[in-house]
Structure formats: structure tokens, C-alpha cells
């Protein structure tokens, strides 16, 4: 299997590089270099171009921030937070219903399923369906979800929020399920043997034990959400992406670069926050 995969992979890579229309030398053709010089010209901020001194740069930056920067960043952050909180909630439910050790007639007791055939089978089916649902939810890129939802719901922040929430629910559902399946089974088995129902085990046993790990995934996805939310604005709802797209449409490459860098800084901020949160969590997990 491994060998076949290896050869298949190499074959695909060769096909992709040599039998497609990818041509890096084309990047350096005259037409493109022309384009590049026009881009570089416009990429220098307006004030610098006109007066040639650095002092006006500060005023230009402040103006940009007041017009687009703060609103864009705030909207981006807001969208990501709501989306990840929603996804976190839905993901935890999907994760629980997709965990095979929880979804069995005798939770966490692997060999005690004799005599519970039908019930066990039904639960297993549910887990399978939930897992496939998670794959389906995340198979469609957030951008496409947002594009479709925008057409259906009109312009507001909701298409972006829902798109991110749906996609990440699938991901967190899968990760949550894996977390539960990898839990240490002794304490949970003890609860099961002592007669606790599945619901009781889930709430009093699985939930506390799995929460730490799940929150690690939660914060990791938060950072990804901020990246995506920045970009979803390009579809038309207010976030940094919207202003970025507008800047490009008006050939204002200096604003374009400024806002893109701003977006990058926002992501780095989220990255640091997410890292801090995860480090704090790791100390206690």
C-alpha cells in the first residue's frame, strides 16, 4: 500500500509539473514585467510619491486606519469569535456522537456488548453517519459556503459567520471525536461498570477529561478563523477583505499592500493569543 502510494504520489507530481500549463518562465515575460513595474510604481504610498518625504507617511497611515483599518479589523475579529464559539459548541456535540467508544451499548467497556447486538449496531451506525457528516461539512471550502450563503441571505456578517461556523464544526467534530476516542478508559470504564448511564458518563466523565484537549484544538481553529474571516470580506461583507478588494479594484496598490500587511498583523496577533491560551491550558492538562 505504501509503495503504491509512493509511486502514485511521484507520478502525480510529475504530471502536475510537466504536463500542465504551469510555466514559471512565463512569469518573467515582457508583458508581466511591465505589469510588475506598474504595480511597483503604484505600490508606493501616495504621499511619498508626491512629496518624496517620509513625514507625510504617518498621516497617511493614520488616515488609512481611520477609514478602513479599525473597522476592518474589528469586524474580522468579531466574525471569527462568533463563528468559532458556534463551531465549538456544535463540534463538541458532533464529536460526542461520533465517538465510537461512547456510542456503544456499554460505553468504554469493549467486550461487554454481548446481548446488546441491535442497540450496539444502531449506535455504531449513528457514529458513522455523524463522522461522514463532519467530513461533508468540511469538504466545502469556507469561501464557497460564504459565496452561496451570501446569495441566499443578503449582505450582512451572517454569511461569513455561518460559513466559518459550518466548516469548523466539521473539523472540531472530527477532532472532538478523536479526543474522546483517545481518552484514558479506566476512570470511564469504572463509571460504566458502576451503572452510570451514557449521558451521565458523558457529562461527568468524558466532558471534564476531554475539555482540555478540545480547547487546544478550539484555539488553534480560532487562529485559522481569523485568517479566513479577513479574506471572506472580499465577497462583500465588511471585513478587511472587503476593503482590500476595493483597493485592488481601484488600482490603489499602496492601500492594497497596507491593508494586506494589516491583515497579516491581525493574524499574527491571533496567533500569539492562541499560543498563549494553549500554553496556559497545557500547564493544567
Amino acid at each position: 500500500m505504501l509503495q503504491i502510494s509512493g509511486w502514485l504520489a511521484l507520478g502525480l507530481i510529475a504530471l502536475a509539473w510537466f504536463f500542465s500549463d504551469i510555466d514559471f518562465s512565463d512569469l518573467f515575460s515582457a508583458r508581466r514585467m511591465d505589469n510588475l513595474s506598474r504595480f511597483a510604481e503604484r505600490a508606493l504610498p501616495d504621499p511619498l510619491r508626491e512629496s518624496g518625504e517620509g513625514g507625510s507617511l504617518g498621516a497617511w497611515v493614520t488616515n488609512q486606519m481611520n477609514l478602513y483599518g479599525w473597522r476592518g479589523m474589528g469586524a474580522t475579529l468579531g466574525i471569527s469569535v462568533i463563528a468559532i464559539v458556534l463551531a465549538g459548541g456544535i463540534g463538541s456535540i458532533l464529536g460526542a456522537f461520533g465517538a465510537r467508544n461512547l456510542m456503544s451499548a456499554h460505553p468504554f467497556v469493549p467486550h461487554a456488548t454481548a446481548g446488546h447486538g441491535a442497540c450496539n449496531h444502531a449506535l455504531d451506525r449513528v457514529a458513522q453517519v455523524v463522522r461522514i457528516l463532519c467530513i461533508l461539512l468540511r469538504a466545502i471550502p469556507e469561501y464557497i459556503w460564504a459565496y452561496l450563503l451570501l446569495a441566499m441571505l443578503g449582505s450582512s456578517a451572517w454569511p461569513a459567520i455561518l460559513a466559518l461556523a459550518i466548516h469548523n464544526s466539521g473539523i472540531l467534530g472530527r477532532l472532538g471525536g478523536e479526543t474522546i476516542e483517545n481518552l484514558a478508559s479506566e476512570p470511564l470504564r469504572a463509571m460504566s461498570m458502576a451503572g452510570a448511564t451514557r449521558k451521565e458518563i458523558a457529562i461527568a466523565g468524558v466532558f471534564p477529561m476531554a475539555l482540555g484537549r478540545y480547547l487546544l484544538y478550539f484555539f488553534y481553529r480560532f487562529e485559522t478563523c481569523v485568517r479566513e474571516a479577513t479574506v471572506l470580506g472580499m465577497l462583500g461583507m465588511v471585513s478587511l477583505g472587503y476593503y482590500i478588494f476595493e483597493a485592488r479594484a481601484h488600482d490603489q496598490y499602496d492601500e492594497l499592500i497596507f491593508l494586506v500587511i494589516l491583515g497579516g498583523l491581525l493574524v499574527m496577533l491571533a496567533d500569539i493569543l492562541s499560543d498563549l491560551a494553549r500554553r496556559w491550558l497545557r500547564r493544567s492538562v
Binding site: S20, D21, I22, D23, F24, D26, L27, R31, R32, N35, L36, F39, A40, Y143, R227, E228, T230, V231, M234, G241, I244, F245, R248, Y253, L256, I257, V260, G263, G264, L265, V267, M268, D271
Partner: peptide, 20 residues
């Protein structure tokens, strides 16, 4: 930190549409 779509936008503006 910069999303692939944003890189795509920058590269589109700088170099035009191209598979590379």
C-alpha cells in the same frame, strides 16, 4: 500570516493571471 487568497490578489495585481 497572509492568506493564500491575499497572496493571489497581490500576485494578480503584480503579474496578471497565470498558472504559476
Amino acid at each position: 500570516s497572509i492568506h493564500e487568497l491575499l497572496w493571489a490578489l497581490l500576485l494578480l495585481a503584480a503579474l496578471g493571471l497565470s498558472p504559476a
